[in-house]
Amino acid sequence: TTLTVNTQTYTFTSEEEAREFARRYGAKTIRKTNGTWEVHG
């Protein structure tokens, strides 16, 4: 199964959650914005 996250942004309140998600789905960018963490595919 392949998950494609081209134009979607996922927002997390903790860096740990964001990094775990990025690691699991191979997202390329993690960015902190206004106190939340954004993961970009």
Rank of each mutant, 00 (worst) to 15 (best):
E20N: 06
T4D: 15
V39S: 01
E16M: 09
R31Y: 12
G35D: 07
A27E: 04
K32N: 12
I30Y: 06
K32F: 15
G26H: 07
W37I: 01
I30M: 04
E38L: 07
Y10D: 01
N6R: 02
T7I: 12
W37N: 00
E15D: 02
T33P: 13
Y10M: 07
K28F: 09
T13W: 07
Y25Q: 06
E20D: 08
Q8I: 12
T13K: 08
T33D: 14
E16S: 09
G41P: 13
G35K: 03
T9Y: 13
E20H: 04
V39I: 04
N6H: 12
T9F: 12
E17Q: 07
R31N: 07
K32W: 11
G35I: 01
W37R: 00
R24N: 05
K28W: 06
L3P: 14
Y25L: 10
W37K: 00
T33M: 10
I30C: 08
W37G: 00
T13Y: 14
T36Q: 11
F12D: 00
F21Y: 07
S14G: 02
F21Q: 01
T29R: 04
T1L: 10
T2L: 10
A22C: 09
E20A: 09
E17W: 02
T1V: 09
T2R: 06
E15K: 03
E38A: 05
Y25S: 10
F12T: 01
T13A: 11
T9W: 15
R23N: 09
T1S: 13
F12E: 00
Y25W: 08
L3G: 14
T9D: 03
T2N: 14
Y25R: 06
V39Q: 00
R23H: 09
R24Y: 05
W37Y: 04
R24W: 06
Y10P: 04
Q8G: 10
R19K: 12
G26Y: 03
T11H: 08
V5Q: 14
T4L: 10
H40V: 15
I30F: 05
T4M: 07
T1N: 13
S14R: 04
A18C: 02
E38T: 07
Y25K: 05
R31Q: 11
K28H: 14
K28R: 06
T36Y: 13
W37F: 04
R24L: 11
R19I: 10
W37M: 01
F12K: 00
F21V: 02
V5G: 14
A22V: 03
R31T: 11
V5H: 15
T36G: 14
A18R: 00
G26T: 02
F21P: 00
A18N: 00
A22E: 03
E16N: 07
G35Y: 02
K28C: 15
E20G: 02
E20V: 04
T33I: 14
T29H: 11
R31L: 13
T13V: 08
F12Q: 00
R19S: 05
G26N: 08
R31G: 04
T36N: 07
V5I: 09
E16Q: 10
I30W: 03
T2A: 13
K32A: 09
F12P: 00
K32T: 09
R23C: 14
E38M: 05
T4P: 14
V39Y: 01
Y10G: 02
K32S: 06
V39A: 02
A27K: 06
E38N: 02
A18Y: 01
L3V: 11
W37Q: 00
Q8W: 15
R31A: 08
T2S: 14
G41W: 15
E15W: 10
A18I: 00
W37V: 01
A22F: 03
G41H: 13
T36S: 08
N6P: 13
N34V: 03
T36V: 15
A22H: 01
E17N: 03
V5K: 07
K28Y: 11
A27H: 15
E38K: 02
F21E: 01
G26P: 03
E15Q: 04
W37D: 00
I30G: 01
W37C: 03
G26A: 04
F12A: 00
H40Y: 14
Y10L: 05
L3N: 14
N6M: 13
A27C: 14
Y25G: 02
T7N: 09
T11Y: 14
Y25I: 15
R23Y: 06
I30S: 03
E20W: 04
T2C: 08
V5M: 11
K32E: 11
Y25P: 00
A22Q: 02
V5C: 12
V39L: 02
T9A: 07
T13M: 08
V39D: 00
R19T: 08
A22Y: 03
E16L: 08
G35R: 01
R19D: 06
F21R: 01
T11M: 07
Q8Y: 13
E15C: 06
L3S: 14
E15P: 02
T29E: 12
G41M: 15
S14K: 04
R23E: 12
F21C: 05
N6Y: 09
E17V: 04
R23Q: 10
N34L: 03
N6A: 13
T33Y: 08
G35S: 04
K28N: 10
N6E: 13
L3A: 14
T1E: 12
T9S: 08
F21T: 01
L3R: 02
G35V: 02
T7K: 07
T33C: 13
T2M: 11
N34H: 04
E16F: 07
F21H: 05
E15Y: 15
G26V: 02
F12V: 01
N34S: 05
V5L: 10
K32G: 08
R23L: 09
N34M: 03
T36L: 15
E16D: 09
N34C: 11
R23V: 08
T33N: 14
G41T: 15
R31M: 10
G26Q: 04
S14L: 04
